[in-house]
Design a protein around this nucleic acid. Structure first.
Ligand code: FES
Ligand code: FES
Lengths: 151, 151
DNA sequence: TATTTAAAGGATAAAAAAGTCTTTTATTAT
DNA sequence: ATAATAAAAGACTTTTTTATCCTTTAAATA
């Protein structure tokens, strides 16, 4: 569905957002640990998100990444996905033809249109605040949690 | 969404099916031409589909690929996709966690469940016959058609 | 101002996916 | 039987994606 880069990007944004709500900047190291992602690769993805004004970064001591709390409910999942994967997921042809169009539809075009509309709808209507909510309440997770009974 | 291999695989099956309905075996060369795919790569994918009993092949002169007409309406899109890409598209976690579960759901789990159910539903209920229908009527296409006015 | 800290940038490496090529095997028709 | 045909098999190459490493730049603070 999404590229690995995009998956890490979304997870990183959600984690950064939870901490930004408590006015805390977070370091790359902390992010990678909390979302269980490879640190240098995550750095690259964050650079891209910073360029796209989704994440804000500050260098040096007590620096790190944050997302301005006022933006957390205006940033849509679509914005993050678009920054990293573009729009092929909801615009491209499901059978990989150069373009998806009503004029030259592939055999699964009509079935796929429904799916792609659903994806677009989800990306367009889900904001970052919604995604952080469950995480803060311990109802959702960004990595497989290991408890004290099993590892 | 699907891998390139899977896209070619689906397109190949649809083309083979249309010809099999006229009792014609088709060669790799013809398939690759008709679905606009790289010939040797398509060969690999077809081998896999033959192993998975979705496509039948015969070597030698007047050999080629076909799909038994009686199977065309029982082969589901799911069967083709599963042969090539497995079930990660509707079973995996949208944010790339090792598994998708209700016990340890990721922040987009609930939104994604709807999408994934839609995909599963589509794959489970769409059969090969449905997909060949539009193609035979010139309503759907397996490659961008070039007409006499523009190329 | 010097030192430390942490991200940015750029080059590189590893792995996976996509695509190619050559040889072998099976089948048909001569 | 033999030649021709077409898929199967397996090794190989290229491209893309994923991941790592090292140097530079910017900011804070001591
Ligand atoms: S043309 Fe293939 S999905 Fe629209
Ligand atoms: S846990 Fe991520 S989609 Fe279910």
């Amino acid at each position: 569905m999404f590229s690995k880069a995009c998956e890490y990007g979304i997870r990183a944004c959600i984690y950064i957002a939870t901490q930004s709500l408590s006015d805390k900047r977070v370091s790359l190291k902390e992010i990678a640990k909390e979302i269980d992602s490879p640190e240098p690769f995550t750095a690259k993805i964050l650079q891209e998100l910073v360029k796209n004004k989704i994440v804000d970064s500050v260098k040096g001591p007590s620096g790190g990444f944050m997302i301005s709390p006022s933006n957390i409910s205006t940033i849509m999942l679509r914005d993050i996905v678009f920054s990293i994967d573009g729009d092929s997921i909801y615009k491209g042809c499901g059978l990989g033809m150069k373009e998806c169009s009503e004029i030259c539809p592939c055999p699964i075009h009509n079935q796929f249109k429904i799916i792609k509309n659903g994806i677009k709808e989800m990306l367009d209507t889900t904001n970052l605040h919604q995604l952080t909510y469950g995480l803060q309440n311990g109802m959702t997770f960004l990595k497989i949690e290991k408890n004290e009974f099993r590892d």
